[in-house]
Write a protein that binds this DNA or RNA. Structure first.
Length: 217
DNA sequence: GCGACAG
DNA sequence: ATCTTGTCGC
């Protein structure tokens, strides 16, 4: 059962966070999935999309989607309860099981160290990391302007993520481990999955698909 | 009490 | 998340 209140949501995060594994690097990665959600402002009808790419060529090999109402409001720090249920429904429709997943939002870089990338990576039992477009928690120095430049993100004296420049001269993204992978592996994969755009291809394509799905209805 | 605050 | 026109720069 998914929690439906702020209180039970926080409790769930505290119960699950110790199961997250923050070490390692995914092995034999052939399929990488990206997930995202789109919806009209003021509406709770969500359009979820998951796109699976060939890790080597970055070609799309499979797509899945799901539509439904969100059971939770948007509250910073509790995003997974708002988007998680529908994203998992889309994941279940996949014929192939990914070797790695990237989420639109944070993983470890969360006030309770359990962002959506940790939560869904754990439920799917797959290596995962988050790529947020803005900061939720933590402090950091600005990375240099060139692609690949990065600086650590700290919170309460602990490293929670990396501020990474995925495109020269463009606003950096926030990368943090979700499950079964380290900071280093997360950053390495984030860079490897970028193809000239600020956002990694898996989530960039999932965003486009979710949007198309929403628009054509 | 005030400001911050993923998507 | 989405809305929304022009504008700046490569």
């Amino acid at each position: 059962m998914w929690p439906r209140t702020y209180r039970t949501g926080v409790r769930r995060q505290l119960e699950l966070r110790d199961r997250v594994l923050l070490r390692g690097s995914p092995r034999r990665v052939r399929l990488v999935a990206g997930a995202d959600i789109s919806y009209d402002r003021g509406s709770d009808v969500f359009f979820a999309a998951v796109v699976v790419l060939d890790a080597r060529s970055l070609e799309t090999v499979e797509e899945a989607s799901a539509t439904g109402r969100s059971p939770f409001p948007y509250i910073p720090g509790l995003l997974s309860f708002r988007e998680g249920p529908l994203l998992l429904r889309a994941f279940r429709r996949l014929r192939q099981r990914p070797d790695l997943c990237v989420f639109d939002g944070h993983g470890l870089a969360h006030p309770r160290r359990f962002g959506i990338a940790c939560h869904l990576g754990l439920l799917l039992d797959l290596p995962s990391f988050g790529c947020g477009k803005s900061r939720l928690v933590g402090t950091h120095e600005a990375p240099r302007a060139r692609v690949g430049s990065c600086t650590p993100l700290y919170h309460e004296r602990r490293r929670l993520g990396t501020v990474l420049r995925t495109r020269t001269g463009v606003k950096p993204v926030f990368i943090s481990p979700g499950h079964r992978m380290s900071h280093e592996a997360s950053v390495r994969w984030a860079l490897r999955l970028c193809a000239g755009y600020r956002i990694p291809e898996p989530t960039r394509r999932a965003h486009i698909l979710a949007n198309a799905h929403r628009t054509r209805r």
